[in-house]
Amino acid sequence: MKYSNIDLSVGAFVLLGIAAIVWFAIRAGAGVLMGGSTYEVNARFTNITGLKAGSQVFIAGVPVGSVDKIDLDSHYAAVVRLHVKQEVHLPSDTIASIKTSGLIGDKFIALAPGADSQNLPPGGTITDTESAMDLESIISRFAFGNVSSSSSPAPQPSAPK
């Protein structure tokens, strides 16, 4: 059997092409977590407006995982399942907050590790959370002049670096 240049180029095209498709699909499916194995952590929020599956999880601006799934529990709280990199250990008093990159950018979860000596086990739940802050409520607070009485922290103004 003789192979021509056409056969060769078509072979390369098909193999490289399928490799690219598979790589692209896996990469997208697994998000940032292709680099290693992960474990699950849950976090309960009263409001997660704008967060979605695939949103990223940061500690000190470093991506450490992503949102896997969002559910509503029996108390009408949002339960967010996170995939966190295996090598990142979270103390059990870690605080999870929902933030926005920029004014209208993507929502993401910022984790602030606490000081507890005990770590969260895989599948454990973060209970200390700060929910999403929507733009309208901030503006209305400015408008009605009760900024100082706000108990919630303002959203982080710029993108994580």
Binding site: I21, F24, A25, R27, A28, G29, G31, V32, A53, G54, S55, Q56, P63, S66, D106, F108, A159, P160, K161
Partner: peptide, 23 residues
């Protein structure tokens, strides 16, 4: 724009469903 910011946004934005729609 910081390259890490760009690529991490790319990674987190494109979901499996987007790839499926694309294909």
């Amino acid at each position: 724009l910081d390259a890490g910011v760009y690529w991490s946004a790319v990674h987190s934005a494109v979901q499996y469903t987007d790839v499926r729609e694309c294909l």
